[in-house]
Design a protein around this nucleic acid. Sequence first.
DNA 1: GCTACCTCTGACGTCAACGTCAGGTTTCTA
DNA 2: TAGAAACCTGACGTTGACGTCAGAGGTAGC
Lengths: 123, 123
Amino acid sequence: MRIGELAERTGVSVRALRYYEEQRLLAAERSGSGQRRYADNAVGRVKLIQQLYAAGISSASILEMLPCVVTGVAAPEVLAKLRGHRSSVVKQIEELQETLQQLDTVIAGATKAYTTGVPCPPG
Amino acid sequence: MRIGELAERTGVSVRALRYYEEQRLLAAERSGSGQRRYADNAVGRVKLIQQLYAAGISSASILEMLPCVVTGVAAPEVLAKLRGHRSSVVKQIEELQETLQQLDTVIAGATKAYTTGVPCPPG
DNA sequence: GCTACCTCTGACGTCAACGTCAGGTTTCTA
DNA sequence: TAGAAACCTGACGTTGACGTCAGAGGTAGC
């Protein structure tokens, strides 16, 4: 498929896909005229990249771990980094759960208070 | 306390604290010579700010919700935004949990494969 | 009162993941 | 075989949360 279709199917922009290629995260065949052609599995690859980005992992780290994700094999150093990222993700989840509780407390309190008290000025 | 102590007690930089003030997220009294003086509860406030930042909430949104967190009262519009942020945090958590599973799969597979197979080149 | 450290304002620098624009080529559709 | 739509390669712009540096003034221990 061409880049526009991949963009549509993954929900990321064309520019982002070119950027991934620049970062060597996503390869593409080229047609005779130089247009990018992607295989079907590129969709999954792009979604994986997005997921890792969302976890706060940098291009460089993703680049490092991608072949391992694909082949299922990793050298000890890479494995150590993977474990590092794993624990960072765990920590992020824990912190977000705390934040969620805070938000819930505020929402619950504010909802109740507003039915009886003075509102907090918006803006 | 002065800004250096607050920085040390919260683990954020002096520059960040000044930035929070710029964004009107954190107020400070001033000494006669113009130095910032913070009350003890500033520690909690800074940690809250960090938590909200970590949830991907912008300065503007934090500014909007802070008085509500403090007073426990919110106008309906603000409340709606709070709920919006809440669901965004929930979504983030879900996505991170997916990512965690992916990482676990990779780590498990790679650990096993490495004991028997070919390593993935590091770097 | 000396000295070492802390703090001030202002202003430019940084970094990552793209957005956007320009100017030209390719591909699809009628 | 038009012409619209998609694609190409640069290359500069953007945004947020700070980092960093300069030059000047404040503070605390001895």
